[in-house]
Design a protein around this nucleic acid. Structure first.
Length: 560
RNA sequence: UGGGGCAUGGUGCAAUGGCAGCACACCGGACUUUGAAUCCGUUGAUCCUGGUUCGAAUCCAAGUGCCCCAGCCA
């Protein structure tokens, strides 16, 4: 089995240990996982998920699930269920602590009023464009809004009328009164509330003003008693604001801690781009096997334990990183190797005829299901006959150096069956090999010779008389490495979908036992890729398989 | 060029003043009923310069490089 990972130290644990030493939170560790319900969770979110839940678990603390649903124009109920399913699939649980930032809209409103009363917030009439001009630049300070010094009474009145729906979208905002010349752009009077006459997936039309992330997140953490609020690096510049609101409001003050998000080679992680793929019909939804979503990984048979192990191996730090997809695949394969049964399937079939095998004889071989796992000795019966299918690439008429598989005059082992020797080939009018004639050695039943002679090659096979027919879809990575930052529209966009990411092979030959396997079952493939039965399981009366990149990689290695 | 952050083999993560280590990848070998897997091994790194120290990846100083911030997104 996979080796135990030694518990890693990381800077987050150092911070928490320090808090525990000083007693800042009374030894309590309470985290939250705060997805915005605007898409499916992908492997990148998984890192945050594992950190939020994992750290709390390690310290005997709790983790809340909290949807950061402060922007109704982007969010949808469809995603909240999908997110919950993914979290549970990974084996994490938030108990009954399922919260929504929108649960706090009333409290947040009261807090805003409180800040207005303190003279720390004001209603601004600047348009979005004007606000941008007033904000200044990275190197030049901003200017104060002409509306910045309205009286508390006027601000109170205007803000309540904003809530009442008197003003159109974009005509007014509520802003924090901080410092227009701050070198940190987030402190230049950030917007707290904007007007959005849009109905919200949970609060419906109860509100037409919605809090910004910065005005909602810290207070939500505070309300829930979160002690450690982990987020990605880009929020570092927001921490002063996170702290400012909490301090001005004089409420419980959690600690925000930032870490580097996960980047994976060959993998598009931007939710915006993934969404565009789905909406543009470039893929078959969020669970398309080519997507990096957890739902897609579940569909193609990645074990959740392997994904968690992968995240653990990646570690946590503040360095910008690009983890190689090979690590993920290694971890997944490592587990699948022991846990899913092995089967034989021929993707690109070539007929082999055993000339000295009785015409209508059939026999069964007992074959181990888990040859790699000494603790599981399950076997199955695999039928064998005079005509069999082998992989086209397992035969070379003129073998290359170091090629150990079948060639004229050469003896190889049919895995778990017999040793066979190629005698002659049959070709069509174009000179293509359409069948290979062989002789088998009846003394080698099971694949070993009584005289002890060895063969260098072993190949897989499927009995022609018993084979199940299938169309198999080979899924690889969806994208080329270079994916445009600004996603182009229409035709141009398709240029960036890797054509090799989906290869459909028809006429594949499968072991008969696979013909009865059910949707969702995973199998180790004969050359150590693997595949998962997927729906739709039948198309035009043929079973359809989806499988993952692992096989493609293995295949690519075999070719070179 | 304002502010914030980060620099350790190809990649990711450790080492918190004391022999720079682990995993993946790569290469080589062994073994094998697939050339996969497994096992073993090799190569390979502290951004630069100076300083403190018996001793620096670690502390100090000055550089260099990369990332983030000018949404009424999160």
């Amino acid at each position: 089995m996979t080796e135990q990972i030694t518990p890693k130290t990381n800077f987050i644990r150092d911070i928490i240990d320090e808090h525990n030493r000083t007693g800042r939170f009374g030894g309590r560790v309470h985290t939250r996982f705060p997805p915005e319900p605007n898409g499916y969770l992908h492997i990148g979110h998984c890192k945050a998920l594992c950190i939020d839940f994992g750290i709390a678990e390690d310290y005997g603390g709790l983790t809340n699930l909290r949807y950061d649903d402060t922007n109704p124009v982007k969010e949808d109920e469809e995603y909240v269920d999908a997110i919950k399913e993914d979290i549970h699939w990974l084996g994490f649980d938030w108990g009954d602590r399922e919260y929504y930032a929108s649960d706090y809209f009333e409290q947040l409103y009261d807090m805003a009023v409180q800040l207005i009363r303190k003279g720390k917030a004001y209603v601004d009439d600047l348009s979005a464009e004007e606000m941008r001009e007033y904000r200044g630049t990275l190197t030049e300070p901003g200017k104060e809004s002409p509306w910045r010094n309205r009286s508390v009474e006027e601000n109170l009145d205007l803000f309540s009328r904003m809530r009442a729906g008197e003003f159109a979208d974009g005509t007014k905002t509520l802003r924090a009164k901080i410092d227009m010349s701050s070198p940190n752009m987030n402190m230049r009077d950030p917007v707290m509330y904007r007007i959005l006459h849009t109905s919200h997936h949970r609060t419906g039309d109860a509100w037409c003003i919605y809090p910004m992330y910065d005005f909602a997140h810290g207070q939500s953490d505070s309300i829930e008693g979160i002690t450690h609020s982990m987020c990605s690096l880009e929020y570092e510049n927001h921490r002063p604001l996170y702290d400012w609101f909490l301090d001005e409001l004089e409420i419980f003050h959690p600690q925000q801690i930032e870490f580097a998000r996960l980047n994976l080679t060959h993998t598009v992680m931007s939710k915006r781009k993934l969404r565009k793929l789905v909406e543009g019909g470039y893929v078959d939804g969020w669970t398309d096997p080519r997507m990096p979503t957890l739902a897609a990984m579940r569909r193609i048979g990645y074990p959740p334990t392997a994904i968690r192990k992968f995240i653990e191996m990646v570690g946590v730090a503040k360095n910008e990183n690009f983890v190689e997809i090979e690590l993920l695949e290694h971890v997944v394969r490592d587990e699948l190797n022991l846990t899913v049964p092995r089967r034989m399937a021929v993707l690109r079939p070539l007929k082999v005829i055993l000339d000295n095998y009785p015409e209508d004889k059939t026999e069964n071989f007992e074959v181990p299901d888990y040859p790699q796992n000494p603790e599981n000795t399950d076997t199955r019966q695999v039928p064998f006959g005079r005509e069999i299918w082998i992989e086209q690439e397992d035969f070379m008429e003129e073998p290359a150096p170091k090629y150990f598989r079948l060639a004229p005059g050469r003896e190889v082992r049919l895995m778990n069956a017999y040793l066979i020797t190629a005698t002659r080939v049959e070709k069509d009018e174009k000179g293509q090999v359409i069948a290979v004639h062989c002789t088998y050695d009846p003394e080698t039943r099971g694949g070993s010779a009584p005289d002890g002679r060895k063969v260098k090659g072993t190949i897989h096979w499927v009995s022609a008389a018993h084979a199940a027919e299938a169309e198999i879809r080979l899924y690889g990575h969806l994208f080329e490495d270079e994916f445009p930052e600004d996603l182009p529209e229409g035709e141009v966009f398709t240029d960036h979908v890797n054509p090799n990411s989906l290869e459909v092979l028809s006429g594949c030959k499968l072991e008969p036992s696979l013909a009865h396997a059910g949707v969702g079952e995973s199998f180790q493939f004969v050359r150590n890729g693997y595949f998962t039965l997927d729906k739709p399981s039948f198309e035009d009366g043929k079973r359809v398989f989806n499988r993952t990149i692992s096989l493609v990689d293995t295949w690519a290695k075999m070719q070179k």
